[in-house]
C-alpha cells in the first residue's frame, strides 16, 4: 500500500516534488547545484583527513 501511494504521487515531472510551489529560475537552479557540489567536496575533504588509514575508518576511532 505504501509503495502504491508513492508510485501514485511521485512523478511530478519538471518540478521539485516535496517543496510545493517552489519554482526556481534556471540561474538559481544552476547556482544551487554548484553550492551542493561544493558541500560534497567539503565532505570528501573532511573524510579524507579523518580516515587517513583503514584502522581509523570506524566512526569515533581514535587517531593513531
Amino acid at each position: 500500500m505504501i509503495l502504491g501511494t508513492i508510485l501514485d504521487t511521485s512523478p511530478c515531472l519538471g518540478q521539485a516534488c516535496y517543496v510545493p510551489g517552489l519554482q526556481l529560475d534556471s540561474t538559481t537552479q544552476t547556482a544551487g547545484a554548484i553550492v551542493m557540489i561544493i558541500i560534497v567536496l567539503a565532505l570528501a575533504w573532511y573524510g579524507n583527513r579523518k580516515w587517513r588509514s583503514p584502522s581509523q575508518e570506524m566512526i569515533g576511532a581514535a587517531p593513531a
Binding site: 518540478q15 521539485a16 516534488c17 519554482q23 537552479q29 544551487g32 547545484a33
Partner: peptide, 8 residues
C-alpha cells in the same frame, strides 16, 4: 538537491 530542484 532534488527537493529544491537544484539541477542543470
Amino acid at each position: 538537491t532534488e527537493a529544491f530542484g537544484l539541477s542543470l
